[in-house]
């Protein structure tokens, strides 16, 4: 049973660690499917986490924190849209800019408002989005295997974790079963065709970018209000880029995105678990190698060795209406 306990523990932390990745990767999915590359996921998530931590600390309400996070993240995504859709600027450059603006301003404003070295005050449990116990979780906890899976693995996560996993089928439905989704995918492949059909390319892309903003806001909220009790300086720590990697790894499809995020979350959980203990056959694996593994896997995938990752055809290209 020892092994089983370890496994449940490992999978539980996998789920916890993959939630912010999943929210951010799904966020990127909307934008990139519409033809707007977004490497500013990291910055938007960071700004969202800061807004959530700051607003929750001031008001004492987690929900106000969540709204603030979504608002600020939405604002940044609109800046990205303004630059890359309205002014046809370089989308990569715009994303880089947003990452820097978020990284700098969260520290400056955090220090100015709370004077705790860039972090927001520690939140009480009321101001957090804490664990939700699913019904009967206590009752079935003693049932071997199934009970344990139910009460330890499935129950006891933040509401945002459930939202994140429900967003997977929802996103699939939106993209592949609604008119909006069809148009969104079309505008990412061939905007001229969409334009000819009398649909506004710009407005469609703006809506996609706004979806991105909302979801990155949720990802930031999860980091600040569920995984931690407040905002810590540079707390995204490259998760936005891992999410981007997961998105590419999954070839811009919602369900594979979930598995890619779970894989990267598992690698993270696993590297924390095995720190210092040698593995059978392989021996001691350096922590740094485990940390670099998501990035290495993504490069290998991009190289086309695990099937080719083909981005939306119009991705990264600003749309110029012919005159």
């Amino acid at each position: 049973m020892q092994l089983f306990d370890t496994l449940v523990f490992l999978l539980d932390s996998t789920v916890r660690l993959s939630v912010p990745l999943l929210l951010a990767a799904l966020a990127g999915l909307y934008s990139e499917r519409s033809g707007v590359f977004d490497i500013g996921l990291e910055g938007k998530m960071l700004a969202g986490a800061f807004a959530a931590g700051a607003a929750a600390a001031v008001t004492g309400s987690a929900w106000v924190g969540l709204i603030a996070a979504v608002a600020i993240s939405l604002l940044l995504s609109l800046v990205h849209g303004f630059a890359s859709i309205t002014h046809r600027g370089n989308q990569i450059v715009s994303g880089v800019a947003i990452n820097f603006i978020a990284a700098g301003s969260t520290i400056i404003l955090g220090q100015a408002w709370f004077s705790q070295g860039g972090r927001t005050p520690l939140l009480s449990d009321d101001a957090r989005l804490g664990a939700i116990r699913l019904p009967f979780a206590e009752a079935v906890a003693d049932v071997p295997i199934i009970g344990q899976i139910y009460s330890d693995l499935l129950s006891g996560h933040s509401i945002l974790a459930y939202v994140a996993f429900l967003m997977v089928p929802f996103t699939w439905w939106v993209l592949f079963r609604t008119r909006f989704g069809l148009r969104l995918r079309a505008v990412g492949e061939n905007p001229a065709a969409v334009d000819t059909a009398g649909i506004s390319v710009a407005w469609l892309r703006y809506r996609a970018v706004m979806c991105t903003g909302i979801l990155t806001g949720l990802a930031g909220t999860y980091l600040a209000l569920s995984q931690n009790a407040g905002f810590v300086k540079d707390m995204t720590a490259g998760r936005g880029f891992i999410a981007l990697a997961a998105l590419i790894f999954a070839k811009w499809r919602p369900v594979p995105v979930m598995f890619a995020c779970l894989l990267f979350g598992f690698l993270d959980a696993f590297s924390i678990r095995i720190q210092g203990t040698p593995l059978p056959f392989i021996g001691q694996v350096p922590v740094q190698f485990m940390q670099a593994l998501p990035y290495i896997l993504t490069v290998v995938l991009l190289a086309g060795f695990i099937g080719q990752a083909i981005p939306p055809r119009a991705g990264g290209v600003p749309y110029v209406k012919e005159r």
């Binding site: 800046v79 303004f82 630059a83 890359s84 002014h87 600027g89 370089n90 989308q91 450059v93 715009s94 880089v96 800019a97 947003i98 990452n99 820097f100 603006i101 978020a102 990284a103 700098g104």
Partner: peptide, 10 residues
């Protein structure tokens, strides 16, 4: 970040 935004993307 602002320089990248205004001198680059915008």
């Amino acid at each position: 970040g602002l320089v990248i935004l205004f001198a680059g993307a915008l």
